[in-house]
Design a protein around this nucleic acid. Structure first.
Length: 600
RNA sequence: GCCGACGUAGCUCAACGGCAGAGCAACCGCCUUGUAAGCGGUAGGUUAUGGGUUCGAUUCCCGUCGUCGGCUCCA
């Protein structure tokens, strides 16, 4: 699926425009420095734009952008032809003498081994140059015919960031300039608007404005604090999953946050996951770790529960468990990436034959939940092990697990694309990547097949043949992590949660003091019916209270003055701005119930 | 962790070598209100933090912590 999309993009005009814009930017940047001082690395088109990596004598600043953009427009105005030339490796090396990154790339091409990102290539590629004006780059193209085909009003330099040469943190860090480029100025405007909209929806900003969660220097980085409203949101989201998966036959267990380190030596975490674990704690000569994953705990529980018959399987152990992961400081991002991560985790113990039906059950659950949250589409990534990376070495079990996962997906007609090097250390995964209303992709759910840990931890069940067998363990999460999921839905709904999810569903607005007692009475009535409501009994004007509720994105505003008090009614206003006038309390209740059921 | 930018009142932002300010929020009063901000007053700061330069530092320099944009990693 995704493969098709990428190949289409590579053939598009936009791709050529962005690729060419990258070359033009590289020319403009190198011209800022004396000849030979600026070293260039790579500069490909990317989604929405392009970048180019440089090794420069000085740090660039955003203040350099106007000059670079101006020079780029001049180069565009020159209508210089992009000329392709196929060359020998020797000739290429002569041309890029003094350009160490290019020389390294040429060597990779010469050996027929690697492309510009260091990925292995199947065939030995030809080496080609593209030249426009005075600038020549090692490049396989394609490009626009001449620089004049770039719209000078439809590109913009966006930001500067550090990036490792070939994406390897052991290599030198280069300066990367990101730019965006489009066919028309209007498309550029629309892109910038989308960026602005994303900024407005940023869950870190909305989290503060809606008073959902905080981070504190006194608590520590990556460790969120949830307010009553934020916790309500968490609770509703988790409880919804809990109730739904219970209906699907998942049971819940509880395991503690602290575990003996020895268990992680047996499970493989110690060898493959140690750098993500918080440092050890020692008491009475025993070394403990904060739990970074649930699997070993759930598997140990399975073992402690005695002999298991094949008749008990599949056995599904679910838990909303907070895990502790020592993420690198620079990786923390609001709720999307925290050090105390709560997973809606499940480990299903089953036979190899049951993998297919468990896969079906799980995807049915995913679909139901995604519909509830109005995620219109998702893609599935089959995450396989890759070269290098940390994986338990047991090729036979890996092959069996991969085959089993593929088969399960195929049997259930799940479409997927494959990605090497994305597997968990203990097995392959099917990762669900959902699209939000702005079209952004988020990895949420996962379904994983594990042949490794159950064997390492010595799990068994007694089969029909009265012999001991090792169960397969399926790892599964729906939200993935409560915190990240909240981040995603805050941005997805822009903070205007559907009624069923809104921490405060209705604000009651008495117009004057004499209406407050009536508002309190109605509030009690609504609470008794299970609604989450607040009374704004302050001395503000009604319109100020409405404004307040609007800003808090509360679904219903119930205004009450003399008229309503006399007739036992409430005047209903929706956050859309719609004024529905006075209705009875009962009429409001049935409307709210209807909205909740519909998922509005 | 790495590269860069940024940290001023609860929030959003001014001041940029010479007495640290505004709006909103909070608190107190007045108003008793009809669908997105009624009026007045009060209080709020060792300018993230530790050093340095200077007669004098929020402002310039260095370290630390944190946040942001990326890289790496990832639920």
């Amino acid at each position: 699926m995704a493969q098709k999309k990428i190949s289409r993009y590579e053939d598009s005009d936009l791709y050529k425009i962005r690729h060419s814009a990258a070359h033009i930017m590289a020319q403009a940047v190198t011209e800022l420095f004396p000849p030979g001082e600026a070293k260039v690395a790579i500069g490909p088109p990317i989604e929405d734009g392009f970048y180019y990596d440089f090794d420069l004598p000085r740090q660039l600043k955003p203040e350099d952008f106007p000059a670079i953009e101006k020079r780029m427009r001049a180069i565009i105005g020159g209508k210089f032809e992009f000329k392709k030339r196929v060359v020998s490796a020797d000739e290429a090396k002569r041309e890029f003498k003094g350009q160490p990154y290019k020389l390294e790339l040429i060597e990779g091409l010469e050996k027929g081994g690697f492309d510009e990102y260091g990925n292995p290539l199947k065939e030995k590629p030809e080496i080609s140059f593209y030249t426009h004006d005075s600038f020549t780059d090692l490049c396989r193209g394609p490009h626009v015919a001449n620089t004049g085909q770039i719209n000078p009003d439809a590109f913009k330099l966006m930001n500067i960031a550090g990036a490792y040469w070939r994406g390897d943190e052991k290599n030198k860090q280069l300066q990367r300039i990101y730019g965006t480029a489009w066919e028309t100025a209007q498309q550029l405007e629309e892109y910038l608007w989308r960026q602005e909209e994303a900024k407005k929806r940023d869950h870190r900003k909305l989290g503060k404005e809606l008073g959902l969660f905080y981070f504190s220097d006194d608590i520590g980085p990556g460790i969120p604090l949830f307010t009553p409203k934020g916790e309500m949101l968490r609770h509703i989201a988790e409880n919804y999953i809990r109730e739904t998966q219970t209906r699907y036959g998942f049971q819940h267990v509880w395991t503690a946050n602290l575990v003996k380190e020895d268990l992680y030596k047996k499970s493989g975490h110690y060898d493959n996951y140690a750098d993500v674990m918080f440092p050890p704690m020692v008491g009475d000569g025993v070394t403990y770790r904060l739990k970074p994953m649930n699997c070993p705990s759930h598997m140990t529980l399975f073992k402690e529960m005695g002999l298991h018959s094949y008749r008990e399987l599949p056995l599904r152990f679910s838990e909303f468990a907070t895990l502790y992961r020592y993420e690198k400081s620079g990786e923390l991002t609001g709720l999307a990436r925290v050090r105390t991560v709560t997973q809606d985790d499940c480990h299903t113990f089953c036979t190899e034959e049951q993998i297919g039906s468990e896969c079906a059950l799980t995807f049915k659950l995913f679909n139901e939940v995604f519909a509830r949250y109005r995620f219109s589409s998702y893609v599935v990534r089959l995450s396989l092990r890759g070269e290098g990376g940390k994986y338990v070495k047991d090729p036979e079990k890996w092959d069996r697990a991969e085959a089993a996962l593929r088969k399960a997906l195929d049997e259930n007609n799940v479409e997927y694309y494959e990605a090497e090097g994305e597997a968990a250390f203990y097995g392959p995964k099917a990762d669900i990547i959902a699209r939000d209303v702005l079209g952004r992709e988020w990895q949420l759910s996962t379904f994983q097949v594990d042949f490794i840990q159950p064997a390492r931890l010595g799990l068994t069940y007694i089969g029909e043949d009265n012999q001991e067998h090792t169960p397969v363990v399926l790892h599964r999460a729906v939200m993935g992590s409560t915190e990240r999921f909240l981040a995603v839905i805050i941005e997805h709904f822009a903070g205007a949660f559907p009624v069923w999810l809104a921490p405060v569903q209705a604000v009651l607005i008495p117009i004057a003091d004499r209406h407050t007692a009536y508002a309190q009475k109605v509030a009690e009535q609504l609470k008794a019916a299970g609604l989450r409501v607040e009374v704004n009994a302050g001395s503000d004007r009604m319109s100020a209270k409405i404004r307040d509720a609007q800003n808090q994105k509360v679904p219903y505003m119930l205004v009450m003055g003399d008229k309503e008090m006399e007739s036992g009614a409430v005047a209903l206003r929706l956050r859309s701005g719609e004024d529905l006038g006075a209705i009875s309390v009962d009429a409001f209740l049935s409307r709210a119930k209807e909205d909740i059921e519909k998922g509005d």
